[in-house]
Nucleic acid binder design. Structure first.
Lengths: 253, 253
DNA sequence: GATGAAATTCTTATCGC
DNA sequence: GCGATAAGAATTTCATC
């Protein structure tokens, strides 16, 4: 029942986990040196074999009108776990169900509601199905990453944020080494903010260039290999990092 | 900071949660009666505001060369939770991280490895980051669903599987009412299997038509509104149901 | 929010190994 | 069976109203 994957399949899975919507077949084809048609054929095979279950959009419901996301940790008898998981997945509000191999706490159900009353309705619906809720908590954030083993081999994870310290509120300090091909290279900080390369909520507070530490001004121009310290109030780390790392790191073979 | 959504935004989110890759802008445009360009503009706005976090492919790693998926339930000090979550997400093998609001068990980390040794490496990496692993278990299955509140109002969830009983092994019995526009309508069971409308692993064991119960044969032709009982050994319920429900239920206004 | 032209991508059928 | 290729349809991008 296990399907044998080759390098092409693995790379397809990696790219689709990274961005399932804005990754076209020709893009992947360039990366693995086959024709776009082959990529599409493989994708369809992976879908047909059930290896690709589907494609989901990750939604930050909290930002969308303050909806609440709740995680229910539940017990289900092993014999009924599969069917209860199926029934739970169609309860209004439920967006994700995980079946675990343990005897207890073996069903993790994630649901969204516009307020606590809506979540109470989910609680009641799950109870009526015979699912025992052992624990429930609000979900603050969720992050998806591709499976790195299926990614390109020449990956250098050290390029991105080297340090990451949470401050009060949602502000973060990020240390990042500037990529040679980063969008911000050659721009002054003033220009970067004006051209929306750099978020308005982000502030460059230090630049290490070689042996010296520069104090950044609006006219300071960012160069490759600068070690830049950024204070970000937006909390959207990825968006901030985009300015400093290469934009198309995935297209390089 | 909360973004105000209208009917168009909600519907876009619903459709992209349902299928982020094979849902084109014109398809959604037809459903809400605006131009495709407007749908694309809205999608970009939702992406820019961070309401759409990204698009992920759901992978069944077990079917792919028998990879193992593990869920680590961890404790992280509240003050460091956000940064630990960030660091955990780049540990090789980690594909999903959830931050929860509780004091304990507030970090759920999901990782994939080709064997138990690979998962042990993940365990070590997480420990070295200062994450305390409280519990860990293999993940058997995961299901994603769209947020039904954002879906079309005339949804009739009763159309699909009305009952669902797990049997020994991976076999299931499903009761389903046949849709008028289902692919299998007008086909004999023999033809359905030959044309690959119906899975080879699926067996129709009963048909209720009006007041009578038919015993299915190869030559039996499926009609709309038949209540069909299907025994499926494949465990891939969705694939089986596809034959009996309308293929393009989302295109109907 | 709609429209229209240009570029890209997807679908499908066909060919060669 | 698997991958490459090419024509036609559909989709996305971008500028403009």
């Amino acid at each position: 029942m296990t399907y044998r994957l080759d390098e092409i399949d693995r790379r397809i899975i990696y790219e689709l986990m990274r961005d399932a919507r804005n990754t076209s077949a020709p893009t992947i084809a360039d990366a693995v040196n086959v024709s776009p048609g082959t990529i599409r054929n493989r994708i369809h095979q992976l879908e047909d074999h059930g290896i690709i279950r589907g494609y989901t959009a990750g939604i930050d419901f909290e930002q969308a009108e303050g909806h609440l996301t709740n995680l229910y940790v539940c017990n289900a008898p092993i014999s009924e776990r599969k069917s209860l998981a199926r029934e739970a997945s169609v309860v209004p509000g439920v967006i994700n169900v995980r079946e675990l191999m343990t005897g207890r706490r073996n069903l993790h159900i994630m649901a969204v509601g516009e307020n606590t009353e809506a979540l109470r309705r989910v609680t009641r619906a799950l109870s009526q199905l015979g699912i025992e809720i052992e624990d429930e908590t609000l979900v603050e954030a969720e992050t998806d990453s591709p499976y790195s083993s299926f990614g390109p081999e020449d990956e250098t994870p050290g390029t991105e944020a080297t340090d990451f310290i949470s401050l009060a509120g949602d502000a973060n300090v990020i240390d990042v080494t500037v990529d040679e091909t980063a969008p911000i290279v050659g721009c002054s900080l003033e220009e970067a903010v004006r051209d929306e390369i750099l978020d308005d909520d982000s502030l460059v507070i230090a630049i290490e260039r070689g042996d010296e530490v520069l104090t950044p001004h609006g006219t300071t121009v960012i160069e490759p290999d600068d070690l830049v310290t950024v204070l970000s109030r937006s909390g959207r780390t990825d968006a901030v990092l985009e300015a400093f790392v290469t934009e198309a790191s995935r297209t390089e073979q």
